[in-house]
Design a protein around this nucleic acid. Structure first.
Lengths: 201, 201, 201, 201
DNA sequence: TATGAATGAGCATTCATTCAT
DNA sequence: TATGAATGAATGCTCATTCAT
C-alpha cells in the first residue's frame, strides 16, 4: 500500500550513494546497515542481496570511484620523470579528488576504521606509489618532504580549508598552485630559485 | 617496583596510557572498554570509578596532553604578528606534536569519531585559532593556503612520512623547515624572494 | 555427457543428491539452501520450483531412498515369525543400509533435527515395527534387548566402526554376523546354546 | 517490581541446567540463547557474562558432567586387560551414562551439530579410547565388532529402548547384561563357549 | 524451467553503562 | 578503590521463503 516499491533495478547504486553519504557524514563505524536500509526504505536483508558484507559496500565504492586515481597512477608510470610530468600529476590528482570528494573525505576521516578494511592496504600502496612518482629517492630530505606535502596538502583541502572563505574552485586552484610550487622547488637543480608564480590552471 | 601493579594509586594514569595506546592503534570505536580493562587486569567497572564515560577518558587525555597546544596558542596571542613569531609558532608546534604524538595520531585517524565527541569542536576551534595566527585574512588566497598547509604538513608527518627512511628527528626538522618556508613565502612583501635555506632547529 | 550440467531435466535429482551429501556431511540445520543452490550453480529460487520447502527435500529423499526399508517391513509382515525369517530380515536390513548409507547416516546424526520434521515420526514408527518383527513381546527383557541391539548395532556400524581397519564389506558382514547371533540367542528355547559361528553372507 | 530478582549467585548453574534441558529436548541448533534467557528470566547479555559463547555452555556442561567418563577411562588404563576389567568397565560405563543421561542423549541426537563444536573431537577420542580398552586389536573382526557393539548398545539404550515396557532400572541391567555377554564372547579363547547367563548387577 | 530482487524473522554476539556490595 | 552481576540497545549477518517476470 502507498507505493509498493516497484522492484527498481538501481538498488545497488542507491545503496552505494546513501552509504557513501552516511559514511562520510557520520563515519564508517557509526553508520549501521539498519540506518542505510531505513533511509532507502528497504530491509537490511536487501542490502545483503547486493553486497556480501558491510565492508563489501566500501570495496564497491572504491572500485567505482577510486578508478580515476588508478588511471592517473598508471598513466604517470608511462611518462618521463620530468618536472612537467609531476606538475601534470598534481593537476590531474586535484581533479580526481574533486570528482570523488566524498570518498576521499571518508577515507581521510576514517583512517583508523579503513585501516583494517581490505582496501586500507590497497589505498596506502596507491599513495606510496603516487608520492614515489613525485619524489626523487636520492634527493635531500627536505625535497622529499616537499613532494609528500604537495600531495597531502590536497587532502587537507578537503576539510581544513573550509575555514577559508571564497569560491571552492578558487580554493582548489590555490591549493594546486601551492602544491605545484612545492614540487617545483623540490626539483633537482632548482635550489636558490625564485618561487615561480605558479602555473596551475 | 617491578610488580605487575606498580605503585598503587596510579590507576587513573594507567587507564589513560592504555586507552591512548589502543585508541591510536585500533581506533576509538574499535577499542572497547572491556579490552582496556582486560589489558590492565581490572574490571570494566573499575574504569567507571575513574571515568564517568568512555568519552570522559578521551577528554582526560586531551586535558593532560593537549595542554602544550593551549599554552602555545595563548602565548602566541600575546606576541606581535611578525614573521619571527610565526616561525616560532611552527617550531613550538612541531615540538608539541612530537611530545604528544599518539594523541595527535589518534585525532588525525579518528576524525569522524572524534567529531561527535565533545572535544571535537574544541579541537577544531583550536586549529582555527592556530591557523588564524599564521595567516593574514587580507592576504592572497594562495598565501593563506600556504599557511594552512604549513600546519597540516606537520600532521601529515605523523604518518605519511613513514615511507621515508631516515632518523625521525631528521624528518621532523625537514618538515619544520618546509613549513617555515611556506609561512615565510606567505609573508606580505616576500613574493619573488629566494627560498631561504631555512632556519629550523 | 561429461558437461557440468549433464542431461537437463534431472535437476530435481541433482538437488536431492547434493542436499543429501551436504546434510550427511554438515548436518541438516547447518546446511542452507543457499549452499545447496551454489553447489549446483542455480539460484535458491530454482530449488523452490522443485521442492515446496526445505523439509520437502528431506521428504523426497526419504521416499526415494527409504523405500527398501518399507518393502522389507511389508515383506516381513507376510512371513512366519521363525528364526529363519528374522535372520533374513537382518540380512536384508544390512543391505538396505548399505544401499542408502548417506541417508541413514544423516538420520542417525541428526536425530534432534529430524525429530520435528514430519518424517521423524514416520521413521520412528518404522523402527518400532521393525524391532517388533524381531522380538517376542512375551520373551525375557534381555532377549528383547538382544533384538533391539541387533538392529542398532547395524546403525552404529555407519560410523562407530570407522575406527576399525579392514574392508568395509568385511566389516558389514561381521556386523551382520554379530547381529544374527544376537537374534539367534534371543530365540525362545535357545538359552545355554552354543554360539553358532554365524551364517551371514 | 514483582520480585526484582536478587542477584542470586547460582546463575551459572541455572544456565547450564536450562541449556542442557533445552539442548536435549529440541537440539543444539534449534535452541536459541534468547530461549534460554527467557526461560531463566534474564537477558541474553547475562548469559554472556557467564559464558563467552554458546559453544562455551556446552563445553561447561561437558566438563562438569563428562567427568565420570574421564575418570573411568583413566582408571581402566591402570587395570590389567582381563575379562574382569572389561566387565567392570561396562558396569561403570552403564552407571556413568545413567548419571549424565541428558548430556549423552544430547550428544547422541546432535552428533552432526556436536561434530564441529570443539568438544566433538574430544568426545570422539574418548569413545575410541574406551572401545580400545575393550577390544583386542589382534582379535578377529567379529570379536572387535562385539566389543564396539557392547558400548553402543548402551547408547541405544538412551532412546531405542523407550519402546520397551518395564522399569528403567531393569532395562539398564538387561542392557548391561547383553553388553557383558558380548564382551565375554569376544574374549580370546572363549569361542564355542556357552552364553553365560550374565553377571550384571 | 528458472531467475532477480526482496522480505521478515531470527540469531549470536558486543557494547557502554549501572549499581549493590 | 574496586568487583560481580546484570541490562538494554544495538550490530552485522543468515535463513527460509515469496513472487513477478
Amino acid at each position: 500500500m502507498g507505493t509498493p516499491h516497484p522492484r527498481r533495478g538501481n538498488t545497488r547504486q542507491r545503496i552505494q550513494d546513501v552509504a557513501l553519504e552516511l559514511f562520510a557524514e557520520q563515519g564508517y563505524e557509526k553508520t549501521s546497515l539498519r540506518e542505510i536500509a531505513e533511509r532507502l526504505d528497504v530491509t537490511k536483508a536487501a542490502l545483503y542481496y547486493h553486497f556480501k558484507t558491510k565492508e563489501d559496500i566500501v570495496i564497491g565504492l572504491f572500485q567505482d570511484l577510486g578508478r580515476p586515481i588508478d588511471d592517473l597512477i598508471e598513466w604517470a608510470g608511462t611518462q618521463p620523470r620530468t618536472l612537467e610530468t609531476k606538475q601534470e600529476i598534481l593537476r590531474r590528482y586535484s581533479e580526481a579528488l574533486r570528482s570523488a570528494e566524498p570518498l576521499f573525505r571518508f577515507m581521510q576521516e576514517n583512517q583508523a576504521a579503513v585501516r583494517d578494511l581490505s582496501i586500507g592496504e590497497t589505498f596506502k600502496q596507491r599513495m606510496i606509489r603516487l608520492t614515489g612518482l613525485l619524489r626523487e629517492p636520492e634527493a635531500e630530505l627536505t625535497d622529499q618532504v616537499r613532494c609528500i606535502t604537495a600531495i597531502f596538502s590536497m587532502h587537507a583541502g578537503l576539510f581544513a580549508m573550509q575555514t577559508l572563505e571564497g569560491d571552492p574552485e578558487d580554493k582548489r586552484k590555490a591549493i594546486l598552485e601551492v602544491a605545484t610550487e612545492l614540487v617545483t622547488a623540490a626539483q633537482p637543480g632548482s635550489h636558490g630559485q625564485t618561487l615561480s608564480p605558479g602555473t596551475a590552471r
